[in-house]
Nucleic acid binder design. Structure first.
Lengths: 228, 228
DNA sequence: AAGTGGTCTAGACCACCTT
DNA sequence: AGGTGGTCTAGACCACTTA
């Protein structure tokens, strides 16, 4: 048997060219985002090592990157755990998102055209139909799509990265609690306000509507999060 | 000779308890911030390995964390280099900073008291005296202190982290170009506007003044940065 | 086709917590 | 004093670039 791993690109459906630490980074991040590893959970190298069929070091590299990105906390001689999320942290994040929406929605207005208007209306109509049916998962998907469509117009990559990161940080919470039907129809109203403002090409109004939307999302979510 | 390094905590003035990857992370970051490694420069493991008296892996861990934090870019099988900074990136960062100042300066007004007013005035008076003397380095320090004093009132940790990160990302540029005496007296004017707004406890005015300050800083800096 | 330099393994060392 | 699990070393393997 050679020193090198027998199957460098196995254990995952990624095309060649990727390094192990990248695959592991991606995999662990996905597991954190999907709630497989909950906030605060320990991430033991030995376990992960076994799971991915790799020796400790590439695992540690992935964890270090995740630490840099804020998804993981590493304490000296105590190893890695998923970043705990308390109400304060969520409040901080939502406040930043709110501030960033001034950028996103003024870019959105600048880039808006008739095709965008139609797309947004179509998405939100589907959303409403799915609320009627009570299909929460599909609603979630349309919700994601609406925001992605708007945020795609944002020219500021740094903003896009931050928004994506925050979305990942809180998405495990959303899966657990989050969406009941009452909240969904409230969301629909908020979305229509945003869409109307975009169709009117009114940046101030769009920003205000988006910030209102964020605030509501926070108020809804924070009740499910432990104080500390 | 044992397998383990002969002097686990040598090569740096850090107290015990730190791990190697942490020391290296700190050291490399400092070197990037201070311009020892310029944007785009390659960071070869072998060199760093030699420099810090460590084997490749702890170096790589530090680099991975730096990648997660955005200071370093790692390409598969091509290793690490300092994140290149073009004008677009700086523009993006300054736009985000501007947005975050809505949070920082409304917190600042909320937390302001007579002691803060005095402190800010004292700092800016020292700044002005140093401009007279043409002591650019000391000016820079007072500038840093003024902003730190204001930002210390920000309750949002995420915002504080972002601001610190952006400051680190661009500080190597500032060292190279940046501060001539004309710009310094312009900065003084902008600072006094901010201080006046804070003393008046006028959040809107303080935010506007701060955003104006950021915009000017960007305009001044961007002329020194290559288009691409 | 040699060289440069990144990546990964196997296992040793050791810090910390538990008994 | 033993165990658990994090950290680090030495060196093998290999991808990519030079000639």
């Amino acid at each position: 048997m050679l020193t090198q791993t027998a199957s460098p690109a196995s254990a995952s459906g990624e095309g060649l060219g990727g390094t192990s630490y990248r695959r592991v980074h991606k995999a662990i991040l996905a597991d954190i985002v999907n709630g497989v590893y909950s906030p605060g959970a320990r991430l033991k190298v030995a376990e992960l090592s076994k799971r991915y069929g790799l020796s400790p070091m590439p695992i540690r590299e992935a964890l270090q990157q995740l630490q840099g990105e804020g998804f993981v906390i590493m304490s000296p001689n105590r190893g890695a755990s998923v970043r705990p999320i308390d109400r304060r942290f969520v409040a901080d994040i939502y406040e930043v998102r709110s501030a960033l929406y001034t950028i996103i929605y003024s870019d959105a207005i600048k880039g808006a055209d008739a095709a965008l208007d139609e797309a947004l209306v179509a998405i939100q109509k589907r959303f409403d139909a799915l609320v009627e049916r009570g299909d929460i998962a599909a609603c979630h998907e349309q919700n994601r799509l609406l925001h992605a469509t708007i945020e795609a117009l944002c020219r500021n990559r740094e903003v896009a990265n931050l928004i994506a990161r925050y979305s990942n940080l809180t998405s495990s919470l959303r899966d657990v609690f989050g969406y009941n039907l009452d909240r969904l129809s409230q969301i629909s109203e908020e979305h229509w306000m945003i869409i109307e403002a975009i169709r009117a090409r009114d940046a101030g109004k769009a920003i205000a509507a988006a910030q209102h939307h964020v605030r509501r999302a926070f108020e809804n979510m924070s009740q499910y999060i432990p104080e500390n």
